Structure formats: C-alpha cells, structure tokens
Amino acid sequence: DKHFVVALYDYTAMNDRDLQMLKGEKLQVLKGTGDWWLARSLVTGREGYVPSNFVARVE
C-alpha cells in the first residue's frame, strides 16, 4: 500500500541521509514512523529522510 505526501515547506538536507525537498514537491513514503520518514521524491527520484512535520498526506 503506497502512501504519498506533499512537502509543506522547503527543507534543506543537513547531511547525506536527508532528502532535500521544495514546498509542493510530492513524495512517496517508504517508511513512515517516528519524527523522520524515509521518502522518495517523485520529482528527482532521490531517497532520504524528511521531517514528518514538514509533509502532509495526499489522498
């Protein structure tokens, strides 16, 4: 069951495990537990961690 989110804010990666994203960017959540979610950008195809409070679910 795939679940998708949209970035509510720009996020600048703090290290090489984070995923940089721009407000409005759509992401697929690969692992969504805790404060940091592993996601893949549908724009760039890159994977990394994003802060869960920076994204909102897309139905």
Rank of each mutant, 00 (worst) to 15 (best):
Arg17Ile: 06
Tyr49Pro: 03
Lys2Ile: 10
Thr33His: 13
Thr12Glu: 15
Lys2Gln: 13
Asp16Ile: 08
Val55Tyr: 00
Ala13Leu: 01
Asp10Gln: 03
Ala56Glu: 15
Glu47Ser: 09
Phe54Leu: 14
Glu59Thr: 12
Lys23Glu: 07
Glu59Trp: 06
Glu59Lys: 08
Trp36Tyr: 13
Tyr9Ala: 15
Tyr11Asn: 04
Glu47Cys: 09
Val58Gln: 09
Gly45Asp: 06
Arg57Glu: 15
Phe54Trp: 10
Ala39Ile: 10
Arg17Met: 11
Leu8Trp: 00
Ser41Tyr: 01
Thr33Tyr: 10
Gly48Pro: 01
Leu38Tyr: 14
Thr44Leu: 02
Glu59Tyr: 06
Asp1Arg: 11
Glu47Asp: 06
Glu47Pro: 01
Gly24Leu: 00
Lys26Phe: 08
Gln20Ser: 15
Asn53Met: 07
Lys26Trp: 06
Asp10Cys: 02
Lys31Leu: 10
Val55Trp: 03
Phe54Gln: 13
Arg40Gln: 05
Val6Lys: 12
Asn15Thr: 11
Met14Arg: 15
Arg40His: 04
Val58Met: 11
Lys2Asn: 15
Asp16Trp: 08
Lys31Arg: 12
Trp37Gln: 06
Leu27Val: 04
Leu27Gly: 05
Phe54Gly: 12
Val43Asn: 13
Leu30Asp: 01
Gly24Met: 01
Pro51Thr: 00
Asn15Met: 07
Gly24Glu: 02
Lys26Gly: 05
Ala13Met: 06
Asp16His: 12
Asp35Arg: 12
Asp35Lys: 11
Gln28Cys: 08
Val6His: 08
Gly48Gln: 00
Pro51Arg: 07
Tyr11Gln: 08
Thr12Trp: 10
Pro51Ser: 02
Lys31Ser: 14
Ala13Thr: 15
Phe4Glu: 09
Gly34Gln: 06
Phe4Pro: 01
Glu59Cys: 06
Gln28Val: 10
Ala7Glu: 01
Asp35Cys: 10
Asn15Tyr: 07
Gly24Ile: 06
Arg17Lys: 14
Tyr9Ser: 14
Asn53Gln: 07
Leu42Trp: 05
Gly24Lys: 05
Ser52Asp: 04
Asp18Val: 07
Gly48Ser: 01
Ala56Gly: 13
Ala39Trp: 02
Arg40Gly: 01
Asp10Phe: 05
Thr12Val: 12
Ala39Tyr: 00
Leu8Asp: 06
Lys23Ile: 04
Gln20Thr: 15
Arg17Gly: 14
Arg17Glu: 11
Leu30Cys: 04
Asn15Val: 06
His3Ile: 11
Thr12Cys: 11
Val50Gly: 05
Gly45Ile: 03
Gly24Asn: 02
Lys31Gly: 09
Ser52Ala: 14
Asp18Phe: 11
Leu42Lys: 03
Phe4Asp: 08
Phe4Arg: 06
His3Arg: 08
Ala7Cys: 05
Gln20His: 09
Gly34Cys: 03
Tyr49Glu: 01
Lys31Asp: 14
Leu30Pro: 00
Phe54Asp: 00
Tyr9Leu: 09
Arg17Asp: 12
Leu22Arg: 15
Glu47Asn: 02
Ser41His: 08
Pro51Phe: 02
Val6Asp: 04
Asp1Gly: 12
Val29Asp: 03
Ser52Leu: 03
Glu25Asp: 11
Leu27Asp: 03
Asp1Cys: 09
Asp16Pro: 14
Asp16Glu: 13
Tyr9Trp: 09
Asn53Cys: 08
Leu42Ile: 07
Leu30Ser: 04
Leu42Cys: 14
Arg46Gly: 07
Ser52Cys: 11
Gln28Ile: 13
Lys26Arg: 13
Glu59Gly: 12
Gln28Pro: 00
Leu27Lys: 00
Leu38Asp: 02
Phe4Val: 10
Arg40Ala: 01
Met14Trp: 07
Pro51Glu: 01
Tyr11Val: 05
Arg57Gly: 14
Tyr11His: 10
Ala7Trp: 02
Val6Pro: 02
Val55Ile: 08
Asp18Cys: 11
Phe4Asn: 06
Leu8Cys: 02
Ala39Glu: 02
Leu19Phe: 13
His3Trp: 10
Thr12Ser: 13
Leu38Asn: 02
Ala13Tyr: 04
Asp35Phe: 15
Gln20Tyr: 09
Ala13Val: 06
Lys23Ala: 09
Gly45Tyr: 07
Arg40Phe: 00
Asp35Leu: 07
Asp35Met: 11
Arg57Gln: 12
Tyr9Met: 11
Arg57Tyr: 09
Leu42Arg: 02
Leu19Ile: 06
Ala39Val: 15
Gln20Pro: 14
Tyr9His: 15
Ser41Leu: 02
Ala39Gln: 00
Lys2Pro: 10
Asn53Arg: 13
Ala39Ser: 04
Gly48Tyr: 06
Ala7Lys: 01
Gly34Leu: 01
Arg57Asp: 15
Leu27Cys: 05
Ala7Asp: 03
Gly45His: 06
Trp36Asn: 09
Met14Lys: 15
Lys31Thr: 12
Ala7His: 04
Glu47Leu: 07
Lys23Arg: 10
Leu27His: 03
His3Asp: 14
Asn15Pro: 04
Gln28Glu: 14
Val43Ser: 14
Arg46Gln: 14
Asp10Thr: 05
Gly48Arg: 02
Tyr49Leu: 12
Trp37Val: 14
Thr44Ser: 11
Tyr11Gly: 03
Trp37Ile: 15
Asp16Gln: 10
Glu47Thr: 14
Phe54Ala: 15
Phe54Ser: 15
Glu47Lys: 09
Ala7Gln: 03
Ser52Thr: 06
Gly24Val: 01
Leu8Glu: 06
Glu25Ile: 00
Asn53Ser: 12
Lys31Tyr: 05
Phe4Trp: 08
Asp35Thr: 12
Thr33Val: 13
Ala56Phe: 05
Leu22Ser: 15
Glu59Val: 05
Lys2Ser: 12
Glu59Asn: 13
Lys2Met: 11
Arg17His: 11
Asp18Tyr: 13
Lys26Thr: 11
Val5Tyr: 09
Thr33Arg: 09
Val58Asn: 07
Gly34Phe: 00
Asn53Ile: 05
Lys31Asn: 12
Glu25Trp: 02
Ser41Gln: 04
Tyr9Gln: 15
Asp35Ser: 11
Asn53Ala: 10
Met14Val: 15
Tyr9Cys: 15
Thr33Cys: 08
Arg40Thr: 00
Val55Asn: 00
Thr12Gly: 09
Lys26Met: 10
Gly32Asp: 13
Glu25Gln: 05
Arg57Val: 09
Asn15Arg: 11
Tyr11Ile: 02
Ala7Ser: 07
Trp37Tyr: 13
Lys23Leu: 00
Trp36Thr: 11
Ala7Gly: 05
Val6Leu: 08
Leu38Ile: 06
Asn15Phe: 09
Leu8Ala: 07
Asp10Gly: 05
Ala13Pro: 15
Gly48Glu: 01
Asp1Ile: 05
Val6Ala: 06
Gly34Arg: 04
Met14Ser: 15
His3Ser: 11
Glu47Trp: 02
Val43His: 10
Ala56Thr: 14
Leu27Ala: 04
Thr12Arg: 12
Asp35Val: 09
Thr12Gln: 14
Arg17Ala: 09
Val55Met: 00
Val58Arg: 08
Thr44Cys: 01
Leu22Val: 14
Met21Tyr: 00
Thr44Asn: 07
Arg17Asn: 14
Trp36Pro: 05
Lys31Ile: 11
Thr12Leu: 12
Val50Arg: 05
Gly48Asp: 03
Gln20Leu: 06
Glu47Arg: 09
Leu19Met: 11
Tyr49His: 09
Gly45Val: 02
Ala56Tyr: 05
Asp18Gln: 15
Met21Gln: 00
Gly34Asp: 07
Gly34Asn: 06
Val6Ile: 12
Arg57His: 11
Leu30Lys: 05
Tyr49Ala: 00
Ala13Cys: 08
Thr44Gln: 03
Gln20Glu: 13
Asp18Lys: 07
Val55Ser: 02
Val55Gly: 03
Leu30Glu: 05
Asp18Ile: 00
Ser52Ile: 04
Tyr11Arg: 14
Ser52Gln: 12
Ser41Phe: 00
Asp35Gln: 13
Gln28Tyr: 05
Ala7Asn: 02
Ala56Pro: 02
Thr33Leu: 04
Val43Leu: 11
Leu30Val: 08
Glu47Tyr: 07
Val58Thr: 14
Arg40Lys: 10
Trp36Val: 10
Ser52Lys: 15
Asp16Met: 08
Glu47Ala: 08
Leu38Lys: 12
Phe4Ile: 13
Lys23Phe: 00
Ala13Arg: 08
Lys23Ser: 06
Trp37Phe: 14
Ala13Ile: 05
Glu25Ser: 02
Leu22His: 15
Thr12Phe: 12
Arg17Cys: 10
Tyr49Ile: 06
Gly45Phe: 05
Ala39Met: 13
Val58Ile: 13
Tyr49Cys: 05
Thr12Met: 12
